[in-house]
Design a binder for these strands. Structure first.
Length: 511
RNA sequence: GGCGCGUUCGUCUAGCGGUUAGGACGCCGGCCUCUCACGCCGGUAACACGGGUUCGAUCCCCGUACGCGCUACCA
């Protein structure tokens, strides 16, 4: 009998603020976000900053900024309001202390006064007995310095003396913890494999295990969607829920994402964006933003890394809102995925090409202005962008690719000249120049007709004129269709450039 | 080592007992064509292995191998 979800869906993304957002974290955030939106639920951002030794200044602001760039904004969390706060775990210590009392009273947790040295000695003893993974568990806890063995007056004395202590979870012996993972199906663990996990550290902060259970419960989280690295911790969490007398949320553990060579995606060894070791890939989402990836393309790609819409659909390109309607946890894969930059790049081009031209114009204008590039008018820029956008992989390529639309070429491609500028080129170009100067209307059709008249007259292929003209007008050998290009440039500009080039360009020895 | 999870073209994947095992990226041809890009057409390439169950297994079960995760007073 499955209980019907009566509550609205509430999911959370709970990163530790390390200073950067990992590609894998982005996907976890995305799946949580999509799941929430799909079910009209709430997406909560919670900062798991209970490890004070890893505190990074400004990390959570940075995190929010990157998530926002990616189009993932929270309904609740730091900077988002919400009535379940505070959303920084470091600001919730009193809550954890209060809650953990319940666990102690229920006999599910206890004080432990052992020093690190004592614990190490205990582990060493176990290793000497041939135990591979020494644990602080049922087999040794009554030999240690903790409230299980000590009398209550001794415990009070230790605390009064200011002896450092932790609070540990008393994992029961011989229990099987079984649960249904939304992605993996039934998973079970034996309690005998688990040690008495520290719940409250000696600095008074909770560990992840306590904090995430308490917060998920108090924040009324209905579904936990997180990375597979947490799967092994689930039995601990289950026992904590049970001891509190709380229902555990549904869980879904996502497979991890790896480098092309199968290794873990790590920021180590990656110094520069353009110097990434073979087989590796940059895990930092910020790098992709800086490199100029379209946010929608990255999201599209990441979504597809481990999920697909199925149902015989062969759609690959999804806009963010389509992902929301299509997403389903049931279609998330079980197996790990490898990050493939090739496919991301392809998607980027597709997304870029699908952007409305006016949108791209708007994004381009500030940079053009800043670089003092005279783009004449919005309408002129629009025409250029419209003509060129399907040829760009990144928006940043626009200026280098289209500079000649805004100023006469200063350089002419050397290889291009050798290949295309023949002994008769100047003559043909000038004739073409003369022909178009007579044109009443300067549009694609009439320009092409003019050019064909010249080529017919001299009985040469159109390419014999087209290539030199392109070179003369743009300085390069690649670009959009010539006639479209000329029309946009305008008659006057074209004639000026043709005359200049006809005079200046050298003819290399005949091929 | 123990425990857990996983394994379909190089990569992302479809498949949910009977298929010429489909698509996408990449790669290789070709078409279009004034170059590049787009687009179109075609090709390349996969069920890790071994046992079962079954009339029949990519699909269900069990092993093996391999990969990954966990095994902290880190998350």
């Amino acid at each position: 009998m499955r209980k019907e979800p009566v509550l609205t869906v509430r999911v959370r993304f709970a990163p530790s603020p390390t200073g950067f957002v990992h590609i894998g974290s982005l996907r976890t955030a995305l799946y949580n976000y999509l799941f929430a939106k799909k079910h009209n639920g709430r997406f909560v951002l919670r900062i798991e900053d209970t490890d004070r030794s890893r505190f990074v200044e400004g990390a959570s602001e940075n995190l929010v900024r990157i998530l926002e760039w990616a189009g993932i904004s929270a309904d609740e969390g730091p900077g988002y309001n919400g009535t379940y706060g505070p959303y920084f775990q470091s600001q919730r210590t009193s809550i954890y202390k209060e809650q953990v009392e319940k666990l102690i009273n229920a006999g599910a947790a206890y004080y432990a006064f052992d020093t690190p040295q004592e614990i190490e000695q205990m582990r060493q003893r176990q290793r000497n007995q041939g135990v591979h993974t020494p644990k602080y568990d049922y087999s040794v806890r009554d030999q240690m310095r903790n409230s299980l063995r000590l009398s209550s007056s001794e415990v009070e004395e230790e605390i009064a003396n200011g002896t450092a202590f932790v609070i540990r979870l008393k994992i029961p012996k011989d229990r099987i913890f079984r649960f249904q993972d939304r992605i993996r199906g039934e998973v079970e663990f034996s309690s005998d494999e688990i040690d008495d996990q520290v719940l409250i550290k000696s600095d008074g902060f909770p560990t992840y295990h306590l904090a995430n259970v308490v917060d998920d419960h108090l924040m009324e989280i209905t579904h936990i969607i997180r990375g597979e690295e947490w799967l092994s911790s689930v039995p601990k969490h289950l026992f904590i829920y049970e001891s509190f007398g709380w229902d555990a949320p549904e869980m879904a553990h996502l497979p991890l994402i790896f480098n092309p060579d199968g290794s873990k995606m790590s920021k180590r060894n990656i110094q520069s964006l353009d110097d990434i070791p073979a087989g590796k890939v940059d895990p930092d989402v910020e790098s992709y933003r800086r490199k100029g990836y379209e946010n929608s393309a990255l999201i599209n790609y990441i979504a597809l890394l481990g999920w697909n819409p199925g149902k015989g659909t062969e759609q690959e390109i999804f806009m963010p809102d389509e992902l929301v309607t299509e997403f389903s946890l049931d279609r998330v894969n079980k197996s790990r995925a490898i990050f493939d930059l090739n496919k991301l790049n392809w998607l980027n081009k597709e997304h870029l090409g699908r952007q409305p031209t006016e949108e791209l114009v708007k994004r381009l204008e500030p940079e053009l202005t800043q670089k003092k590039i005279d783009y004449k008018s919005d309408q002129y820029l629009y025409q250029v962008v419209d003509l060129v956008k399907s040829r760009l992989a990144f928006l940043q390529e626009f200026i280098p690719y289209s500079h000649y639309f805004f100023q006469d070429p200063e350089h002419f491609d050397e290889k291009g000249i050798r290949k295309r500028w023949k002994s008769d080129s100047a003559k043909l170009v000038l004739e073409f120049c003369q022909e178009i100067s007579k044109l009443e209307t300067f549009d694609v059709k009439s320009i092409e007709e003019a050019l064909r008249r010249i080529s017919d007259h001299h009985d040469v292929g159109a390419g014999r004129i087209i290539h030199p003209v392109r070179l003369a007008v743009t300085g390069v050998t690649v670009g959009p269709g010539l006639f479209e290009l000329l029309q946009i440039l305008g008659k006057e500009t074209v004639i000026r450039r043709l005359k200049y080039a006809a005079e200046k360009l050298p003819v290399y020895k005949q091929q």
